[in-house]
Computed example of a mutant assay.
Amino acid sequence: MIAVDKSKRLLIYVFLGILTLLSLIPFWVVLVNSTRSAEQIQQGLSLVPGTNLAYNWEVLMNKGFDVFGGFKNSLIISTCSTVLNVYFSALAAYGIIAYHFRGKRIFFAIILALLMIPTQISMIGFYQFVSKLGLLNNFIPLILPSIAAPSTVFFLKQYLETIYHPDLADSARLDGAGEIAIFHRIMLPLMKPGLATMAIFSFVTSWNNFLMPLILINDTEKFTLPMLIQLLKTDVYRTEFGSMYLGISLSIIPLILIYLFLSKYIISGVTAGGIKE
């Protein structure tokens, strides 16, 4: 039996290793192509880095690719959106779970209904609304709507159902803690795994957001990194694929870093032993 269990475990590890390798290959190909010339890329796939990184960087700069400006704009929008998204969604989810009020089920049903509405439907109306407010070419309409994130509220509400216990809040109230203090000092630390998970998704979604910034922003100095990548126009006689892959590589590096930073918080059993029966 022990030998059989070891064999099964080995097969599982091999299978997971293959899946991990398959998921990493596309990222590696993009990074490798950013170091190769256009002719080398057209010849076929290669997993060995080339020697054209400096040339691709020079071509990228000559095409007006403002790397640092794009990073700054994308970082401002993505960071602010993620913080607002996660915090207010956690606040709403905690309110749904911890308190009993009239219309609670209807309120949650509205959140579920909003999940089914594609964001593209509201783009025209949202553009007209932002235009009347005079907020075109501004980061505000790209940040503030993240406060209302039905998908994040739904996820955190479902997550809280697995970890929340009324005794935690009641004990804090007996010690004289207010409701806001209970949320910040007790509930937020307990929700770290769920918050980290949604922070990753929120940051990636905001960072890769292309259509809405393209509609609302016309000033090139406020372009995000995905918007700058689409400005890499190809020449009539030559397409610089290497510089295009380099621009794409620069845009995915922050996503990898934010995942590596937050993934350690995605663990299970955070509240194990937190309450004694």
Rank of each mutant, 00 (worst) to 15 (best):
K72W: 14
K72V: 04
L75H: 00
L75Y: 02
I76V: 04
I76T: 02
I76Q: 03
T79G: 05
C80K: 15
T82A: 03
V83E: 01
V83N: 00
N85R: 13
F88Q: 03
A90C: 10
A92S: 02
A93H: 02
Y94P: 00
Y99M: 10
H100D: 14
K104P: 14
I106W: 06
I106D: 06
F107N: 09
A109I: 12
I110F: 13
I110M: 10
I110L: 13
I110S: 15
A113Y: 06
A113H: 07
M116R: 06
M116L: 07
M116K: 13
I117G: 09
I117A: 14
I117R: 09
I117W: 05
P118G: 13
Q120C: 08
Q120T: 15
Q120S: 14
S122L: 11
G125T: 13
G125R: 10
Y127E: 13
V130A: 07
S131D: 13
S131G: 10
L133R: 04
L133A: 14
L135K: 11
L135E: 06
N138P: 04
N138T: 15
N138C: 08
F139E: 07
I143E: 04
I143L: 05
P145V: 14
I147K: 04
A148F: 06
A148H: 03
P150E: 09
P150L: 12
L156K: 00
K157H: 11
K157T: 10
Q158Y: 08
Y159H: 03
I163H: 02
Y164C: 01
H165Q: 15
P166M: 05
P166N: 06
D167A: 15
L168S: 01
